[in-house]
Design a protein around this nucleic acid. Structure first.
Lengths: 232, 232
DNA sequence: CGCTCGGTTGATGCACATCAAAGGCTGTGG
DNA sequence: CCACAGCCTTTGATGTGCATCAACCGAGCG
């Protein structure tokens, strides 16, 4: 075990591992180690053989699906406690990552070898249920986004920001805890940067949002909620 | 057990239950029964309490997400062997269906009570892995669709039809085995019927597709593939 | 000091939505 | 058995939200 005590305790807190005894967790993490990535550092590359999966410890990672033309779609933003690539491990065949995983800001990930999944995770009903649960919530997000596909862009951005805020759940300040660029918002929603900027500039001027050193602060959350309600 | 021998054998063939011994399968299906639905018949309604889940036996079901305005998004088409709502069962809280499930044509579904999930499925690692697998493929579809969101509509329809064909996999005739209306294609892709019709009418005239009594036949698959390749 | 990166603004165009109108087909009830 | 309603398909006219292209600015950084 090459994981520090501090990191180990942190992982034990994650919903994924909640209620699992420390010695059991030890076997689940057999052979794993912590890797750190600087901003835009790559954890796994789409198309590579899937020999490991991971659990986010600090920072954030974006799951990017490359398109034929260099469009680069962001499928999901993984934050601490999120599993990355675990779903893939349960597959019998298919051993290539379908997506590229890149760090946003300085981030750390606990990397777990596939062998450990096969040895312990695969037969551990409790943990499989948890993975199911994570998948379920991620699927819900994808579905919601699909539903919003026809909505005007203002609504979709508002919805996205609120969703990101809700996930961070710091309750105090309404600040999205990862340095989101407008390009990333655009890549996630499948629109162009310009369109995102046009809308968010208005919001900045109206005092609804504010960007301070990379972070996005939602000043008037009620206004965003209003935008979502307005269009019946 | 109120399931006919014929249906039981059919279920045993499904990938979901592959390699599971008959007596084991019996306990997994405890308390379940087969329900049939006529065209547009509802299996579960969004918002209802989730007390059962199901496995599709015959025909097909559409998973519909209602929107504030009556837009009705089709999230997924479930065909024989597909699980419906199983993901939901593994959740600790959240006991309401997020989607409405409706039959397309005359269809049959094996309905399994939640209690059975809690008693046997929940601790059965093998079956949980299978559910994971189903989820994974469904998630892949959602992601692919998200990626295509920016592509022109011709491409998206072509991709959708090919995907549906690939799933049926009857290999002989290139016929999509469920009576898809253009409205349903539109509802699935998040566009209007008119747009779908404008494109598919051209295809019909060009002899690429043909609609015979509700079924859709892909006459020139190569042409559809070409459309996908054309746009770089 | 030139470089890349993120943000911003304006002009122009097109793919798809929207609205409208109509015909065929199926099932259903008087 | 016919009339009617609901669903599916089709076509045309008109409008618009967002993409595209182009240009520029400021900040951080090797």
């Amino acid at each position: 075990m090459e994981i520090s005590d501090h990191d180990f305790k942190k992982m034990a807190q994650f919903p994924l591992f909640a209620g699992i005894k420390p010695d059991e967790l030890l076997t689940l993490l057999k052979g794993s180690r912590v890797r750190s990535h600087s901003h835009r550092g790559t954890f796994v590359e789409a198309g590579d053989e899937a020999s490991t999966f991971g659990v986010v410890l600090d920072g954030a990672y974006k799951l990017v699906k490359p398109t034929p033309k260099g469009d680069d779609f962001i499928m999901y933003f993984a934050t601490p406690g999120d599993a990355v690539g675990a779903l893939l491990m349960s597959q019998e065949q298919s051993v290539r990552y379908p997506i590229t995983v890149k760090a946003i800001g300085f981030s750390r990930m606990c990397v777990i070898p596939k062998a450990t999944f096969n040895n312990t995770w695969r037969s551990h009903a409790q943990i499989l249920l948890r993975i199911n649960s994570i998948l379920y919530s991620r699927m819900g997000i994808l579905q919601d986004e699909k539903t919003l596909a026809r909505a005007p862009l203002v609504e979709r951005i508002a919805w996205f920001l609120l969703k990101m805020l809700e996930r961070s759940n710091s309750s105090e300040e309404q600040i999205i805890p990862l340095p989101l660029t407008r390009q990333e918002i655009a890549d996630h929603l499948g629109v162009t940067v310009e369109s995102v900027i046009r809308i968010m500039s208005q919001w900045t001027q109206a005092g609804i949002v504010r960007s301070t050193d990379g972070q996005l602060e939602i000043v008037r959350m009620d206004q965003l909620v209003q935008i979502l309600k307005d269009q019946p």
